[in-house]
Design a protein around this nucleic acid. Structure first.
Length: 510
RNA sequence: GGCCCGUUCGUCUAGGGGUUAGGACAUCAGAUUUUCAUUCUGGUAACAGGGGUUCGAUUCCCCUACGGGCUACCA
């Protein structure tokens, strides 16, 4: 078997889509599994769509995700350059070779002429409007023009493109690793432009030439490329490279959560979840799009989630770290159908990975949040807070966001709880409890409980009955982590002060 | 319109000629937690439809429907 060499080949036209991250991941997993090489190639042959910062964004995203590049842009390698715009001359040479061999030709048609051809065919109710076998002899190209005319135009600098001369009657077969045999008749393929009038190659030419020169073993890419895959096969045949043609694997698409169509940025905006790995500020509109990183997703969790969108190991295990993914991954187990993007599942994965962390690791997140706000906190206390919060969080930021009361005494109180649980009885008990707490400098959760039990027993009231009111007074909320632990963390004096404040300020509703 | 690809619980999916069609997320209920969450247990819930082939089809074949992709001098 030839060495596994795979490439991720995005074009720098904006932020990297999450589907692109999955494609990169699958390439990466295959490379790692077989001790192969992961290549990053930047496909920037469309100069009109170039977006500043996009390439750097792609690099940063992959780095954050932990998808390491062995060769290519940012890493170098024996086939440099890896940016297609810098390989212009290479493609030209190959395009010309095809022209020389009669497998491609020059075309001088203007945009208007092409448009006229298409509308004419449309009016004739022709099933296709392509530039191909049926139409090319009616156009202005080196097949219809004399050699002299062509030479004249070329020397005069008349704009031209180079088109592939697709054979008339041939069935092109392609064995896709995911979809099996796909065959297309050559009459369905038009004489695709190989080289544009600005001298740049189109995707089709550049991709085939580069994959050949870079000795790519597997082309793993999105399903949107499936229709043009037969054209690529034709190109390999035209060059006489069929022996070293890579294997193809066309990945199912990532779909909108609510059903119809490819997942897009719009969906993400509407439903409030990210679609890009990192924050992205559009350099033209200045619009900021949220990233998974900034939204609190851990890279390992995202990768695990993404890996399972379209692939599964065939076992019932779902939590896989990257090493395990590499071990378990096979192209054969990639599914065929598109997968709807369900952010709930992503959140669940995030929760799982977050919970697997130690309190010490979690406390770093908390300390960071606090540091940004200029709040001081002992490491010990931070770890205790994390212990209290760890089972209720989905994102690192939740520790602080849902545990603000560890640092601020509440000034507003949950109305519903006030309504239902705040009454004369609770004030009596809470006052007594406050008096006990006031006597102490520190208290353990255990003793806080014992003390509360004693107070309740003395007043002859069930603990469960006043717990909600106590929580309300301490945190302002109706729910939260273990209350006794909370009192231990904020310390009895502070707890007593909060009880004081609550007793004086919360009005009894009924 | 043409071409290509697809279709198992709401979602991600396992399975595959004879299964009580399995798991996970979500959801619901119960238990525990004298609060909330966690945790545990249980429940609801799927083979798009029609024809074949077959003793038997969710599984294989065909058609239809539906969904998606492509149809540029974009990738």
């Amino acid at each position: 078997m030839k060495p596994v060499r795979v490439r991720f080949a995005p074009s720098p036209t904006g932020a990297l889509h999450i589907g692109g991250v999955r494609t990169a991941l699958y390439n990466y997993l295959l490379a790692r599994k077989h001790g192969g090489t992961m290549i990053l190639r930047i496909e920037d042959t469309d100069q009109t769509r170039y977006v500043p910062g996009a390439e750097e964004y792609i690099l940063d995203s992959l780095k954050w995700a932990g998808i390491a590049i062995d060769e290519g842009v940012g890493a170098g390698g024996p086939h440099a350059p890896y940016r297609q715009s810098e390989r212009k001359e290479i493609y030209k040479k190959y395009a010309l070779q095809l022209v020389d061999e009669g497998k491609a030709y020059y075309a001088f048609d203007t945009e208007e002429e092409l448009e006229a051809m298409r509308t004419r065919l449309k009016n004739e109710a022709s099933s296709t409007q392509q530039y191909g076998v049926a139409t090319r002899m009616g156009m202005r190209n080196s097949l219809t023009l004399s050699a002299n005319e062509v030479a004249d135009k070329l020397s005069q600098g008349v704009p031209y493109v180079i088109r592939l001369r697709v054979p008339a009657d041939q069935t092109i077969e392609l064995n896709d690793l995911i979809r099996g045999n796909v065959s297309v008749h050559s009459s369905q393929i038009d004489d695709k432009v190989l080289m544009k009038s600005d001298g740049m190659p189109t995707y089709h030419l550049a991709n085939v030439v580069d994959d050949y020169l870079m000795q790519i073993s597997h082309v793993i890419r999105g399903e949107e490329w499936l229709p043009s895959a037969p054209l690529h096969v034709l190109l390999y045949q035209s060059f006489g490279w069929q022996e070293s043609m890579p294997e193809f694997a066309h990945l199912p698409l990532l779909l909108k959560p609510d059903g119809n169509g490819k997942l897009s940025k719009r969906d993400a905006d509407q439903m409030g979840f990210p679609i890009f790995p990192l924050n992205w500020k559009d350099p033209n509109t200045q619009e900021l799009a949220k990233g998974f990183r900034e939204s609190g997703y851990l890279p390992e969790a995202l990768l695990n989630f993404l890996a399972f969108l379209g692939w599964n190991p065939g076992t019932e295990q779902e939590l896989f770290n990257v090493a395990q993914l590499i071990e378990a991954f096979t192209i054969e187990r990639i599914g065929k159908a598109g997968a709807k993007f369900d952010i709930h599942k992503a959140q669940w994965f995030n929760q799982q990975y977050l919970r697997a962390k130690s309190n010490k690791e979690l406390s770093k997140y908390l300390l960071t949040s606090l540091g940004e706000l200029g709040i001081d906190c002992e490491v010990d206390k931070a770890e205790k807070i994390c212990q209290a919060m760890r089972d209720r969080i989905t994102f690192p930021n939740d520790i602080f966001a849902q545990g603000k009361f560890f640092f601020y005494s509440p000034s507003v109180f949950d109305e519903q709880v006030v309504q239902k649980k705040w009454n004369a009885e609770s004030i009596t008990v809470l006052s007594a409890y406050r008096d006990e707490l006031k006597k102490l400098e520190t208290i353990t959760a255990e003793n806080a409980k014992i003390t509360l039990d004693a107070v309740c027993a003395k007043l002859n009231i069930g603990v469960g009955k006043i717990l909600p009111a106590l929580r309300l007074a301490i945190t302002g909320q109706g729910s939260g982590p273990d209350l006794m632990q909370t009192i231990e963390i904020i310390e009895p004096k502070e707890a007593a002060a909060r009880l004081d404040f609550a007793i004086q300020n919360i009005a009894i509703k009924k």
